[in-house]
Amino acid sequence: MDAAELAQLLTPEGMALLDRTPSVSDGGEIVRVVSRLRAEGHDPGLVAAVLTQAKLRQKAGAKFGPFASRMLFTEAGLAQATRLQVAAQHAGRFAAAGITRVADLGCGIGGDAMAMAALDLDVTAVDRDEVTAAVATHNLAPWDAARVELGDAADFDLTRVDGVWMDPARRTPGHGATRRLADPDDWSPSLDTVFAAATTTPTGVKLGPGIDRDLIPDTAEAQWVSVDREVVELALWFGPLARPGVRRAATVIGAHGTAEMTGEADAPDVEVGGLGAYLYEPDGAVIRARLIGDLARAVDGRMLSDGIAYVTSDRAVTTPFAQGFRVVDTMPLDVKQLAARLAADDVGTVEIKKRGVDVDPAQFRKRLRLRGRRSVTLVLTRLEGRHTAVLCERLGAVAG
């Protein structure tokens, strides 16, 4: 979407047309809607823009819930936007620290700024892209204390605010398909600019969860966040936004609500031991935060193998920080033996998990030729130095 298309969409005709256009994904239905709208005399460019927005709103429901029905999006902006439930966590940090004037630098379509404004924070949202800034202006319109400025985050006067939230652009500019930028010096603003701001102003930073840990300053609280078992971000917190005594945090959001594990540093490891009656797969946020040792101690567990993020224990424990499984049996990782065993057990559906073995789960599943009625989980890993298949059943009581 370019500036001209957005300007057309933001007219009374365009917004009225968008509000009464259903979200459609079926090709035939899309053709019928396009034909109907054009027959009504609407400009073809406006019709295309409206249909694109209708599809993006439908897709955005997973991140923004009912708010999506009144928001505008770009394809790239939606892909990079913070989920509203995570943005609420960010906003809560600023409110808890007593910070009332916040700059959201690199605001994108305004997801984080929306959450801040909803907590009555005074928000100045800044983005260097004209279309993105206009979309953010629309999305923030319900809040009088939020405003959008077009500009470069690196040039913003930090003395205007009490705290800063930064989401450096880590992809090439554009509103559609973009390319990831690997070098932090190429981000906008650069990581050096971000960390320089953090030395003078309470600062929160959103980064990709897979960032090189060597880039994380010792002065920051590093918080990895997962939603429904997907690790979605690394947030760094500086100054009063960082919690005393916390340098590592794993925040896990799911059906259970929000749970958190914290530490003063990476957790010390636990010993490797024999396979117990239960197997635990730590949440990705726990793994990224390197708090697996604390999780293992919480379930009276031990590591299954060196360098592999599976924990085993002799008791079942309910925890939102891991998925739990009851161990049924172990077998050599041999597809023919496994196929015969699963056929004998009337297994037709297999969930495959793997760590420490070079296996394509989709291809492996095809080779098993499953036809039964039961379901099991196969954990493919190394056990005592040997490639092993662990037959498991999920612990239904494990939260998350």
Rank of each mutant, 00 (worst) to 15 (best):
S226I: 15
R394E: 15
Q8R: 15
R248V: 12
D346M: 11
L338R: 04
L140S: 03
V359Q: 10
R170H: 00
K354Q: 14
L37N: 08
F67L: 15
A91T: 10
T381A: 10
R36C: 04
D19K: 05
I211R: 03
A153F: 08
V376T: 11
H387K: 14
K63A: 10
M166C: 03
V376P: 01
G348Q: 07
D2P: 10
T318A: 15
A125Q: 09
P217M: 01
R374T: 09
M15L: 15
D183F: 08
T201S: 06
A298T: 02
E281S: 12
G284V: 14
L236T: 03
P202I: 13
D306I: 10
G77C: 07
G151V: 13
A118N: 05
A169Q: 12
A196K: 12
D162Q: 15
A340E: 11
L395W: 05
P184T: 13
D122A: 15
T258P: 03
Y310K: 12
D186C: 11
L9Q: 09
D112G: 00
V327E: 02
P209C: 08
P184F: 11
R315M: 15
T312R: 13
G276L: 12
T319Q: 03
A255S: 13
A97D: 08
R243K: 14
T124A: 11
A296K: 12
H256M: 08
T74L: 09
V311C: 08
A118H: 02
Q53K: 13
V123W: 05
P332M: 04
L119I: 04
A220G: 06
G106W: 01
A255C: 09
A309F: 04
K55S: 14
V328M: 07
V357G: 09
E264K: 12
T74E: 08
A141E: 11
A141H: 04
I308L: 14
A289N: 11
K353M: 13
D186K: 13
T381G: 07
Q8P: 00
V231A: 04
R147C: 05
P184S: 10
I253W: 00
R374V: 01
P189N: 09
L6D: 03
V31F: 06
A340M: 11
T132Y: 09
L279E: 07
T251D: 00
G41L: 13
G324R: 10
K354C: 02
T251G: 01
E29D: 07
A16H: 10
D2L: 02
E393D: 15
Q363M: 04
G163C: 10
L10Y: 03
R213D: 00
D346Y: 13
A259C: 08
A343I: 12
P209N: 00
G110C: 06
A3L: 13
I308H: 02
L207E: 01
R101L: 02
R365E: 01
R373N: 10
W237V: 09
R213H: 09
L6Q: 06
A79N: 07
G111K: 12
D2R: 14
R243D: 05
F321G: 00
R57Y: 06
Q323N: 05
I211V: 14
R170T: 05
L191D: 02
D157F: 06
